[in-house]
Design a binder for these strands. Structure first.
Lengths: 257, 257
DNA sequence: GCAGATTATGTCAGCCACTGACATTCGGCA
DNA sequence: TGCCGAATGTCAGTGGCTGACATAATCTGC
């Protein structure tokens, strides 16, 4: 876990991953966000330090993420079974599924933490910056922060970057990731709207901006993946900047001045 | 099938949906596009009209899409099993999977046709239009074309619109759909690059533009889904236009002039 | 029209992701 | 110490998806 983000202490508790009850017209209650960090009442940084139970849970979760990460990187995502992951950590398969709604979720866990940190950064951007500036600064800052003080452990930049590649290579993961991204975008919309004192239902700009921002980011990720050798956070930051710089030109009327 | 797009005559043939062979480092050969329309050599509008075999295949495929569509809309996506779909058309489950790589694919088949038609429209836009204009015009035109002359059958606008809603309501489908979209974006990149005589590896503008275009579109879709009552293609077109109009303002420096 | 090559389909057996139900064990707390 | 609730394990079952093989259709050249 990167030093900046308070580790999401996820508790195993019931949520239905994705499958919806049969016999329902157009899928009722479909959008179960699998709820990372449920944070039971009376947890969440309440004065009391977490008890043994809490710590144990966190350790198990970390171990699962770590084991999964290792296996995925060596055997591929599809080539790794949940049983294997569980076996490494020495828990039952059933327990695995109490921590993660599905196989995708373990893989994306590290990414998810990084995204949370980005949101944090965005919230802290000074009010003078205009929305686009704030977004751009926040994403660069978050990569940079995660890059420095990298411990190499799970949740580190290294992991996150390896993950970007794994995701882009694995169709299932890519799909799941893209879905997560769109949820993150909704948060971005509300943050931006708050900053500017707008109602997103009235003014479409936050929505559109968030969408554009997300897509430019992903372009940069893709570009980073294609470019072998260019690893490391700096390369990623450079690419992000470069892609953002092309936003204006791309939307400009005339490309062949 | 909408009158405009030549019905993709898909042949059941081997492809691996998603799962990758075990024992592979970071998933080799990962990006198997499940290959709609494989078009065996010597098919593809060769003078010879399609034989009985070809026609039968097409009929089976259409029947599967139609049956699936109906079941999904009444029972939900998760609430419908592949066996049920196959049973309606009276083929074996195995046969189903020879036509579609997975359950997602049947659901997205109609959408996929509409997207193909959009690409066709884009290719036909006059060279005078600048890239953004061309994209915008093409998407509006494709919705409009599909809207007129709607037969209400499978592949019609009605189906496509119902589908947009189903997708947005069903996490699994949404994920799969988003992934398809990104593939479609790659095509858009090459089309735009050709139009402007650019090398997408050199000039980032096509890539960035395609990404932005895709994300704005999806915003519009989402907005259309939220807005109950406002059904029909016209409403969709209006929303698309409105979202595009916010592109400039959203990226502009100052939001509180 | 008929043999023989192709190709679509069915059957079967099996892997794996995922879930509900119930029993057991373990940590928190009086 | 003893009770309560939460975490875990076990088990059995469903459903998506695949490989292998046999069978039944089409298509081909004659």
């Amino acid at each position: 876990m990167a030093a900046q983000t308070s580790p999401p202490a996820t508790a195993p508790d019931g949520r239905t991953a994705d499958g919806t009850a049969p016999g329902a017209t157009p899928d009722p209650a479909a959008d179960h966000t699998p709820d990372r960090t449920p944070d039971h009442p009376a947890d969440r940084a309440s004065g009391r330090p977490p008890g043994l139970r809490e710590r144990k849970k966190q350790r198990t979760r970390d171990a699962l993420v770590h084991a999964a990460h290792g296996l995925f990187l060596t055997q591929g995502f599809a080539g790794t079974t949940v049983d294997e992951i569980a076996a490494v950590v020495d828990v039952s398969q059933r327990t695995f599924f109490r921590y993660f709604a599905n196989k995708d979720e373990v893989a994306l866990a590290v990414m998810a933490d990084a995204e949370d940190y980005f949101i944090e950064c965005l919230r802290r951007r000074p009010a003078e910056e205009n929305p686009l500036q704030a977004l751009r600064a926040a994403i660069v800052q978050s990569w940079r922060d995660l890059g420095s003080g990298d411990l190499g452990g799970p949740g580190s930049i290294t992991s996150a970057l390896e993950l970007v590649r794994l995701i882009e290579e694995t169709p299932t993961l890519l799909a799941a990731h893209l879905r997560r991204i769109t949820q993150q975008e909704r948060i971005v919309v509300t943050v931006i709207a708050e900053r500017e004192g707008l109602d997103p239902a009235e003014d479409l700009r936050p929505t559109v901006l968030a969408a554009v921002f997300g897509s430019v980011l992903r372009s940069a990720h893709l570009s980073w993946c294609d470019d072998q050798e260019k690893c490391g956070p700096e390369a990623m930051i450079t690419l992000i900047e470069r892609h953002f710089d092309q936003l204006g030109p791309a939307l400009a009327g005339d490309w062949r001045h």
